[in-house]
Computed example of a mutant assay.
Amino acid sequence: MIYTVTFSPCLDYAVWVEELKPGQVNRVEKENMLPGGKGINVSIVLNNLGFESTALGFIAGFTGREIEKQIKASGCHSDFINIEKGNSRINIKLKSKEETDINGIGPIIEAAHMNQLFDQLDQLKQEDILVLAGSIPSCVSTTIYCDIMERVQSKKVRVVVDATKKLLVNVLEKKPFLIKPNHHELGEIFDVELKENEEIIYYAKKLQEKGARNVLISMAGDGAIFLSENGDILASKAPKGQVVNSVGAGDSMVAGFLAGYLEQMGYKNTTNLYQYAFKMGVATGSASAFSNQLARKEEVFKLLKMI
């Protein structure tokens, strides 16, 4: 089973305004409200691709109930921990000539809530996959992903981490199965600006030297680069298409990679295991970017032929 953890689930409220006029009344042309959070996005896309997962994390208040309701309606499993006080976030995605994000404040996660999460993680079994994705609220320690990995290490759970800065760097010594920074986040870790593929590969190797087994670098419209634990280096341009919405594209890449990996693991011949997983990741990330909704199976396999 695949489990995803989202510490700060949200409702993403996207509104489209032809021309934003600050200080005036602006009329919305169209709007959309969907459950959000990186781990939740991974679960939804996995479900769209035919793979079951369970979304874990923390919800609160009426927004939390709506998040849970929409996730269940999408066909996904969830087992969220309910926080008694506060509300889950509403993140506003204001789309005009420029895109503006306004992110809300989530509830306070206390020690008792964290213990409930640890109890859930103690139930994981060998060969399960755990996805730790996204930022954490300020009330949670920046070592939390590392603490979780240490807790499940004896179970030989394959852990995927999609995070930034300290959250990501702190887990490397625990040898995560896969990490997925984008090229900007990779540069931030080493305080450099990365432009060329050779530079990206150089610094991605440094993350492997620090412990990461597999490193997947997303580069938006420029495609992606993958360094496998077998020593292979793969690169792919993004398939051609019009970018409609970049929100969730990176999470979709993670979901696509896992779907491709698990699909190939079902065959006796796994020679092209990581190659196929990488291609699925690129196709799935692109499918989300080219749509107002998260990637769906038909779109993904259509783009897969172009990679």
Rank of each mutant, 00 (worst) to 15 (best):
K85Q: 14
H113W: 07
I102Y: 10
K174S: 03
T4I: 05
L194Q: 08
M253E: 03
Y267T: 13
T100A: 06
I108S: 09
I148V: 12
E196L: 14
Q264L: 11
G266T: 09
L167W: 03
L294S: 10
K21R: 15
S218V: 08
V192D: 00
Y145T: 08
Q123N: 15
N269I: 12
A60W: 02
G86M: 04
S291R: 14
R213C: 04
K85G: 00
E29G: 10
A287P: 05
V131Q: 07
N26K: 07
Q70N: 15
L262K: 15
T164V: 13
C146E: 15
E68I: 00
G86N: 09
E31L: 09
K38P: 02
V17W: 03
G241H: 07
I233N: 09
V15M: 15
N272P: 04
I40T: 04
I225N: 07
I90Q: 10
Q116V: 10
G221D: 14
T143W: 01
S246T: 15
G23V: 05
Q116A: 14
I189P: 01
I109G: 04
E18H: 14
P239H: 06
S8M: 14
V25H: 07
N182H: 07
Q208D: 07
K125R: 15
K85H: 10
V254D: 09
L56E: 03
T100L: 14
S286R: 09
G211A: 11
L194G: 02
Y276G: 00
M253G: 06
L168Y: 10
D147V: 08
R151L: 06
V160F: 06
C146Q: 15
C76V: 13
I109Q: 08
M253I: 04
L117T: 05
A295T: 08
E31V: 01
K97D: 11
C146G: 01
E52Q: 13
N91F: 00
S78M: 02
G231R: 12
P239A: 05
A277N: 12
G75K: 14
W16L: 12
I179W: 02
E193M: 07
P239D: 03
S246N: 13
Y13W: 12
C146D: 12
Q293G: 11
I108L: 12
T6V: 09
H183D: 14
D101K: 14
A133R: 03
L258N: 02
T142G: 01
L132D: 01
N230P: 00
P176D: 05
T63G: 00
N230E: 13
I144Y: 09
S246C: 10
K268I: 03
H113K: 12
C76F: 02
K125I: 00
A238E: 06
G61C: 07
F80W: 04
G256L: 08
Q293A: 13
D122H: 14
F301L: 14
V17Y: 06
E29F: 02
Q116P: 05
Q70V: 00
Y13F: 15
M33R: 14
R65Q: 13
K125W: 00
A289L: 06
K72S: 12
V171I: 11
E84G: 01
T271I: 10
E52W: 00
F257C: 04
M219H: 01
